[in-house]
């Protein structure tokens, strides 16, 4: 139950959003997050979006992994 999953926002109505986790659609309360728009990814936990996922930081993490990979492959 403590699972939180990345979910894509597909519709917003007031404080509630419809979100998709790999095609399965759930409802998510938006009370805890600001400035969410359709297409954003949020973390879905027990019926609430608990945070908006930050693409820039995700890309930075992936870049560091790639750097490590490149260093070791040399």
């Amino acid at each position: 139950m403590c699972l939180s999953l990345p979910a894509r926002v597909i519709a917003i109505e007031g404080d509630m959003a419809e979100v998709s986790v790999g095609g399965a659609v759930f409802k998510a309360g938006l009370q805890m997050v600001d400035d969410v728009t359709v297409g954003d990814y949020v973390l879905l936990h027990a019926g609430f979006a608990i945070e908006k996922l930050k693409e820039e930081d995700a890309l930075e993490t992936l870049r560091l992994l790639q750097e490590m990979d490149d260093a070791i492959s040399k």
Binding site: Y41, E55, L65, Q66, I72
Partner: peptide, 20 residues
């Protein structure tokens, strides 16, 4: 960016295991 598969890259997993 789907925030799932990108972080399951086999090559990166192997590199991390090697470094550890």
């Amino acid at each position: 960016m789907k925030y799932v598969d990108e972080f399951r890259n086999r090559r990166h997993i192997a590199v991390l295991a090697e470094l550890i």
